[in-house]
């Protein structure tokens, strides 16, 4: 499981964002995006903080967080691998892709590697059907994938980590 960092500095960063964007309509979504980015997830502590800042109930926030698969309540890995299981990707073999990534990393979908580097998640259609089957690793997109490309793609991230 990846480590959760709830340091004061991170709360300060979120608070700054909230203060700077006050008065915007529908303030909750952008704040949740920020929180997800800053903390890597939106756990109860952070939801309570947002609840007080925005005067929105925890239940309401939790409802939104559980509605969108982009938000999570538990820490995710440094790299989130999203495998699109939308219709187009699925017929182009996405199931094999997600199975292979899972066995290579030794985790099941929606789990995080022990070292906290990778989280594997199945997503709904990400709107890149022309590239099917497609996966995303954080902000990088890999399309027209075949299972044999997987080791090379993953090594980019493991190597990068080791090089740091």
């Amino acid at each position: 499981m990846a480590k959760l960092d709830l340091s004061k500095a991170k709360y300060a960063k979120l608070k700054k964002f909230i203060d700077e964007n006050q008065g915007e309509t529908c303030g909750l979504m952008p704040v949740l995006h920020q929180a997800q980015e800053i903390f890597g997830c939106i756990p109860i502590e952070v939801q309570k903080f947002i609840s007080e800042e925005l005067n929105v109930s925890v239940a309401e926030i939790y409802g939104v967080v559980t509605f969108y698969s982009r938000f999570s309540t538990e820490p995710v890995g440094e790299y989130v691998i999203g495998v699109c299981l939308g219709t187009a990707c699925y017929v182009k073999g996405a199931q094999k892709i997600i199975d292979d990534i899972g066995s290579k990393l030794n985790i099941k979908p929606e789990q995080t590697t022990k070292d906290g580097k990778f989280t594997l998640t199945a997503t709904r259609c990400i709107g890149a059907c022309g590239l099917a089957p497609v996966i995303t690793i954080n902000d990088d997109v890999y399309g027209r994938l075949t299972p044999d490309q997987i080791p090379e793609i993953l090594s980019k991230y493991t190597d990068e980590l080791e090089g740091e």
Binding site: A59, I61, T66
Partner: peptide
């Protein structure tokens, strides 16, 4: 005026529940 109940999760998994599934006693 409490908003302690809401829809959580979505689609087939949607239920009415409290924040983080806390018991009513602690959910406000």
């Amino acid at each position: 005026g409490m908003s302690i109940l809401t829809y959580i999760h979505r689609g087939f998994e949607a239920v009415v529940g409290t924040g983080f599934n806390y018991k009513l006693e602690d959910a406000g």
